[in-house]
Design a protein around this nucleic acid. Structure first.
Lengths: 161, 161
DNA sequence: AATGAATATTTCGAGAGTCGAAGTATTTGT
DNA sequence: ACAAATACTTCGACTCTCGAAATATTCATT
């Protein structure tokens, strides 16, 4: 059985910090959460199209447009139309954007390294497992909220050839 | 040495979920982060004055006023002036507010219990240790950025049986 | 007891971020 | 060839946040 009181006290004393990831970053930089996610996603994939972006960062297309607009103005992202399908907009990092992401990442790495260094070998090995378990639970639990559309997709008509 | 690529991939694939705690909650309620913190803080202390609130949730007083204003309108919080010093405003939960916090808390407990149940005893012990180490690092790192009002970092032990 | 400084809070106006609905441009299907 | 589908943007409304100025009360000093 869990000691709820002590645990939630600890939880709420500290969780605040987790909820403002923008502030982890020691870089003097004011990007919103969506903007940070966009930069990291673009870095990871090299090229991203608007609908993928919206999907991955979990916002409607209209919001994604605004996010990218700001990043373009800030000079971190460039926006082009696809040659093969001119409806599609492809975004990439500019050199400045890449530089920023690299700094951002090394900042995060620094944290990870600090944590890593603070753990014993045994702890490191178990940490991975725990991570997965926790995220699995979060995933399962969030299906109820976010996957109404997925359910509809499943019920949807099936093409018969 | 850390495998940065694998680790950050895992990190960014999942961290998104952590950053939107509002959505953990299966209650069909739309409270902002500040509003949730305010409710929880008020629950914990019974009575809170505006300046304490602003301090604890990390916003200026003008923002705190707005947050409380919304919660009062929603019927979750009542606001009174202190008898001894009429400048001071004291906030408390209404019955509705208390009911909501109780639901909110049991919702969070459910998550904690799920995670707890998914772990072996050994992993539980380890998780506790890791938690403290991580928060220590976050604390140290954030001191430079935010005010040092974290006067006393009372590190408590979690009781588990 | 009077008054200026200090304290606690609110009001106001502006800015950032988000979103749904309607609009534009391009491609697909028949 | 042309209506439907797709990819995206624009627009207006709304929420949340914040700093500066305003208000109200108490404290300190004379």
């Amino acid at each position: 059985m869990l000691d709820y009181t002590a645990l939630t006290d600890l939880f709420f004393d500290n969780i605040k910090k987790l909820f403002y990831p923008e502030e982890w970053i020691t870089l003097d930089l004011t990007l919103s959460k969506s903007e940070i996610f966009t930069m990291l996603l673009t870095d990871r994939h090299g090229e991203v199209i608007m609908s993928q972006l919206a999907e991955h960062i979990g916002v409607p297309m209209s919001t994604a447009t605004g996010v990218v607009e700001r990043l373009v103005k800030a000079g971190y992202i460039k926006r082009e139309r696809s040659e093969s399908d001119r409806r599609i907009v492809v975004i990439k990092l500019t050199d400045n954007g890449q530089e920023l992401v690299d700094k951002l990442k090394s900042n995060i790495y620094e944290y990870l390294q600090l944590i890593y260094d603070a753990l014993t070998e045994e702890e490191r090995q178990l940490l991975g497992k725990i991570f997965f378990k926790v995220f699995d639970i979060l995933n399962e639990r969030m299906i109820g909220k976010t996957n109404e559309s997925d359910e509809k997709k499943q019920i949807r008509k099936i093409e018969i050839d």
